[in-house]
Amino acid sequence: MADATAGQTVTACNAPGGFSRLARLTGVNWRGALAVVAFVLGWELLVRFKALGFAAVPGPLESLTAFWATYASKASYWESWFASFRRVVAGFVLAQLLGIPLGLFLGTRERLRELMFPVLELMRPIPPIAWVPLSILFWPTHELSIIFITFIGAFFIIVINVHDGVRTIKQEHLWLARSLGAGEAMIFRRIVLPSVLPAISVGMTLGIAVTWNVVIAAEMIAGDNGLGRLTWEGYVSHTSTVVIIGMVSIGFAGYLSSALVSWLLHKLTPWRA
């Protein structure tokens, strides 16, 4: 009853725009597409009419032209993509490989939790970027220090999420598994791990976004290449179109990695439709 009423209200609200019907028919988010077009158009207009502060900002058309003319076919541009992606993948994967087991241990072993949790809670609030100086001092190459900082960005997030996930496993599930004859190893594999997968999902989804944040900042400070470096070089060499190309590229790169992670997680948790 309540559902039916809610359904009607939603339809009534959407009817005037007609976007919902169009979206249903075509499978495209037309409202979102329109917003992107409006944003680009607004930006172009602000630049054309030299709105306050926009004097030095290149417009989207100018940036796109520069992109097609020079960057799309330039090897160094795509090498920037590759360099940043490699760092993100390395830092992110490493964070999962170490963070997931640590989170599981912390969630299941009370003594280990008592021992390690205060240290983690003290380190967690330190922004990954604050690790840059120490990281450069510690690691022999800049490449390793950037990967390390990226790792830090995703590591604490996954540890905390997995830890919380373990501690919210339903007691009934554990009891029932025992009633049905499962031993400890089997309970871990068939009950604990799948119970924690949703928490791992959250940790990974948040982690991949933070990883891009961190890698770009680290590249601007300490990198020789990568999309962050590209953007920064655009600024120091007064080629402002490169700044825009860099920023938009980072946006696409981040979006692509998030989509990849969410596709992977969807495959891992088919029961969460």
Binding site: K170, E172, H173, W175, S179, L180, G181, W271
Partner: peptide, 28 residues
């Protein structure tokens, strides 16, 4: 010691959501 001779059905339900119905039922 829990065991298969006395199995509980809980108030809020405790099927394993990550297993299909069949996997749940044959688990024991």
């Amino acid at each position: 010691r829990p065991g298969p001779q006395r199995v509980v059905v809980f108030q809020h339900g405790a099927l394993f959501p990550w297993m299909t119905v069949l996997e749940n039922v044959i688990y024991g």
